[in-house]
Amino acid sequence: MLDIIIHLLLAILMPPLLLGVIVKTKAAFAGRVGAPLLQPYYDIARLLRKGSVFSDTTTWVFRAGPVVTLAATAVAALLVPLGNHPAPVSFAGDMILFAYLFGLARFFTTVAALDTGSSFEGMGAAREVTFSCLAEPTLFFALITLARMSGSLSLTPMLTHATVGDWLTAGASLLLLVGALFLVLLVENCRIPFDDPTTHLELTMIHEVMVLDHSGPAFGLILYGAALKLFVLGAFFMNVALPVRTGNTLADWGIFVASMLVLAVAVGVVESVMARLRLIRIPQLLVAATILSAFSMLLILR
């Protein structure tokens, strides 16, 4: 019961902190002080206190978009084990539900953007769906690889099965898998080099353009949902990349929290040392991620 409570508290409270760490890291690279670590919390709280403005052209789909997206991401957070601790919800085949919960969230985000009737937001939605179609095979190849290694179709045994010893016996496969999953982490969270979450240049906006018409509490839900998605996919990634197990409950929780902060710093470093790729290069990088995960699966299945 204690593990479930800690799991829920971390899933609720920690996501905005990751965004704050990323911003702080980028500010440090630029030689600036940067916004406070807790600034994402202040922004979300401020938005939740504001009123909302809805266009006359929108329907209930536009209003449901942020709510359904956040709800789907929250359910996905219940399926992923944090560190060495089992997820609150676990059953055979939950890996398929995990993948398509993000698909459901993306679907409602895109249809809410299309519901505005704006060709500008339609352009961003088309790009978002295109990138997700290229990233989804990578995730499924990764799930197949982990299922083969653990002998289970449930995320909890799949992600808690990996140990440091697995890196000695299947290091090549895991290394390819980690590279592919890191690319999926970046593209699914609309981070550089795939998208720039801070840009407002019309020709380069992808995810941000889809939420331009949202305001107030709805936009606050979108910001929190984006932070929660980074947290969930980050936890999935770190279970594979850093399978450190001590056997001590508190120590394992501490290692998990520290690893998530390190991941946020890594994302900030990537965004500080490179620029966003040209649009025609992004599909090539996503195909490369798919090839990496496919080779990882072949090495395990051989």
Results as ranks from 00 to 15, higher is better:
I206A: 06
L174C: 07
N189Q: 08
G216L: 10
M205Q: 14
L212H: 08
R191P: 07
T163F: 07
F219A: 08
T169M: 08
T156L: 07
A180S: 15
T156K: 01
H161A: 15
E188N: 13
T169E: 12
V209P: 00
G225V: 02
L159R: 01
W167S: 07
S173I: 02
N189D: 06
V209F: 01
H214E: 09
A226L: 03
N189P: 03
D213Y: 05
E188Y: 09
Y224E: 03
F194E: 02
T163E: 12
T198D: 15
G171M: 04
V164C: 08
V187P: 01
H214M: 07
W167M: 12
G225H: 04
L233T: 10
T156H: 01
G234D: 02
L183W: 05
L186P: 05
G179M: 13
D196P: 14
I206G: 01
E208F: 11
H214S: 03
M205V: 03
V211M: 08
H214N: 12
L221A: 12
L181E: 00
H161E: 10
L228F: 08
W167E: 02
T156M: 03
A226N: 11
V211W: 00
W167V: 06
A227T: 01
L223Y: 05
A227W: 08
L176H: 00
L223I: 06
G220Q: 05
I206L: 11
G225C: 08
L223F: 03
M210Q: 13
V178I: 13
V187G: 04
G179E: 03
L174M: 15
L168P: 01
T160Y: 06
L183S: 10
Y224P: 00
E202M: 13
H214V: 01
L175W: 06
L168D: 14
E202T: 14
E188M: 12
P193D: 12
G220W: 05
L223E: 13
P193M: 10
L159M: 07
E188P: 00
E188S: 14
L185N: 02
G165F: 07
S215M: 11
L183D: 00
V164G: 00
K229L: 04
M158G: 04
V187C: 09
L159P: 06
A180G: 15
N189W: 02
L176G: 04
H214R: 09
C190F: 15
G234T: 02
L228H: 08
H207T: 01
F231R: 00
F231H: 09
I222D: 06
D166W: 10
P197E: 07
H200T: 14
